[in-house]
Design a protein around this nucleic acid. Structure first.
Length: 558
RNA sequence: UGGGGUGUCGCCAAGUUGGUAAGGCACCGGAUUUUGAUUCCGGCAUUCGCAGGUUCGAGUCCUGCCACCCCAGCCA
């Protein structure tokens, strides 16, 4: 797709097909207005990113507009902090809503007037049943409900009661306003659904102006109407609510009637995407907060170092359909790596193993010229310091090569130091547990680029950092949050918090080449042969750099 | 046993009037490579939940099954 408001381009999904047809038939006079309507009761996650990209993307493509609307009708669960977080995340993701920033609470007065009109028309009534009684008379999936004894109150009495509800004359739960539809409907949402409830709670925006609050089904369709939304995109679980959405607008005979269209929500392996569960992780301290880099939240991924471009690409790759599915983590990972591919590279050792070069002059040091990106010359070059004492990756040495394809270091084996010399492991100094604590190697001084043995072939190349020049750094290695593909639905009855990955965060003390210590906060870089890291601005300190591992390099070896 | 949905390769997903199964991810080869990365070639559904039927011809039409998801908040 070109994204230039072209109506005739090939549609990306069934929703765009519907819009093209609507535009062709003149259903909405060619207008396309959407909205992203989050409830400010938690942070946005990657599932919301899908909806954001869809709603804003469709508006962009068809030359329409998209509102950012806070669905704030339940003051008990919402807060201004969440509102701010949501705005920041949508903006970071790359979308702008301009003046189209609204709140369902902006419409409370209009919603109230519409409610009186419903009463006036005899289509809504004040019900004085208790919560339990309403539940008991709602019926079941297979049995119809029974009408409320208050269903036939007069318009006058309903109006009086409803006005007194608003005036605060009744305690919470004493009455509710209900739509008068059909208690025998096979669709439970149509069995005289509650429209308003009394709730003495301080609203983050309207304060104590109201003690009655409208329910979602009543609020959403009218907010859509008020904003002139044409296509109201939501997830599949709201499909059963569409008849009610239409009923409210039809009953009120609104001059404009938005079309609700449902699509399937995103499910991702090895994580959970429900606000309830994410909230539990935060509330019970399993993570450091909604923006913990391990969280599938937009804020978490931002702190981890993922770029918005990667998330947008992911959303276009997974598509939009009506079928339930679970996307593999590898699909997201691919998008993140693709996006990071152009970042500069450097050398850093995550898990250090000391190496002493026995035939390298003790007082000597050299600076090797190295490209910042092997395929992107424009990224320039830098000098990497080298001396007779180095750190290499612990994983790059093994006493016994597992097979003939092994290309790293082992006793007697040779390997090239990236951008440097070829070295051979002559001796291994071991500790009490028999583990290697230091390697003694000899170096071929003619093997560097330009030297007589520069073309000598050795099986592998490993990264390293000069022990004398290297800068100690905190390396935060992040991994998947759960050990099970679908932690939200474990077959053995375990709770999702029982399958948290104990190694989702491993903090290491490593060494990075000087160049890395001089990077600006917010920089992203690839530690060669290891992965991409992010210098998280929030953790920037002059004393010791802190890097978050965004994601590892693809590894076809292990 | 009510209502609403969905079933195309391990995962996501095209397939719009029936004409003989796109693409991406993953995976498997092989080339290049001072990152076991990247890049690059090549492979990867005789088959579209199942069973019948209509048709010269069906993933696309009809019938009947089966599986899975959602709904009984004064949550959204």
């Amino acid at each position: 797709m070109t994204g230039h408001g072209t109506d005739d381009a090939r549609p990306d999904n069934f929703i765009e097909q519907i819009i093209q047809k609507d535009n062709a038939s003149g259903k909405f006079e060619g207008r396309v207005v959407t909205r992203f309507p989050p409830e400010p009761n938690g942070f946005l996650h990657i599932g919301h990113a899908k909806s954001i990209c869809l709603n804003f993307g469709v508006a962009q493509r068809f030359g329409g507009a998209c509102f950012l609307r806070m669905d704030d009708t339940n003051p008990l669960k919402e807060s201004a902090e969440y509102v701010a977080a949501i705005q920041r995340d949508v903006r970071w993701l790359g979308f702008a809503w301009g003046e189209r920033e609204t709140h369902a609470s902006d419409y409370f007065e209009q919603l109230y007037i519409f409610a009186e009109e419903l009463i006036q028309r005899g289509r809504a009534f004040v019900c004085s049943l208790t919560l339990e009684e309403i539940r008991a008379t709602r019926g079941t999936l297979t049995e119809p409900g029974t009408p409320s004894p208050y269903r036939d109150r007069s318009v006058e009495e309903n109006l009086d009661l409803f006005r007194r509800m608003r005036a605060g004359e009744f305690p919470d739960g004493a009455h509710v306003l209900r739509a008068k539809i059909d208690m025998a409907s096979p669709n439970i949402n149509m069995r005289d659904p509650v429209l308003y409830r009394i709730r003495r709670a301080h609203h983050q925006r309207t304060g104590d102006a109201w003690c009655i609050y409208p329910m979602y089904d009543y609020t959403h369709c009218l907010s859509d109407y008020l904003e002139g939304i044409t296509h109201s995109l939501c997830t599949l679980e709201f499909e059963d609510h569409r008849p009610l959405y239409d009923w409210v607008l039809d009953t009120l005979a609104t001059p404009h009637h938005p079309q609700q269209i449902e699509f399937s929500r995103l499910n991702l392996e090895y994580t959970v995407l429900s606000k309830r569960m994410l909230n539990t992780l935060v509330a019970d301290g399993h993570v450091d907060g909604w923006d913990d880099p391990r969280m599938p939240t937009i804020a978490g991924m931002r702190r981890r170092g993922v770029r918005p471009e990667a998330l947008q690409e992911f959303c276009t790759r997974i598509g939009v359909t009506r079928s339930d599915g679970t996307v593999e983590m590898s699909s997201l990972e691919r998008c993140i790596r693709d996006d990071l591919e152009a970042m500069p590279r450097a050398l850093a050792v995550v898990n250090p193993l000391k190496v002493v070069l026995t035939n390298y002059p003790d007082d000597r040091e050299e600076w090797f010229r190295a490209p910042n990106h092997p395929q992107v010359a424009a990224l320039g070059e830098r000098d990497v310091p080298f001396c007779g004492e180095l750190f290499i990756e612990r994983d790059d040495f093994v006493f016994e090569p597992p097979n003939k394809k092994y290309k790293r270091l082992s006793p007697g084996a040779e390997v090239r130091l990236r951008y440097g010399y070829i070295v051979r492991c002559d001796e291994v100094i071991t500790g009490n547990d028999g583990e290697a604590v230091e390697l003694r190697c000899s170096v071929d001084l003619e093997s560097r680029a330009g030297g007589a043995n520069a073309e000598r072939k050795v099986k592998g190349v490993i990264h390293w950092v000069s022990a004398r020049h290297g800068v100690a750094a905190e390396l935060r290695l992040y991994d998947r949050l759960f050990t099970e593909p679908n932690p939200a639905a474990l077959k053995d009855g375990r709770h999702f918090t029982e399958v948290l990955n104990p190694e989702s965060l491993v903090i290491r003390e490593g060494y990075v080449e000087p160049y890395l210590a001089g990077l600006a906060p917010g920089s992203r870089v690839q530690f060669e042969r290891s992965g991409w890291f992010y210098l998280e601005p929030e953790r920037a300190t002059a004393a010791r750099p802190v890097f978050n591992r965004i994601i590892t390099l693809r590894d076809s070896w292990n």
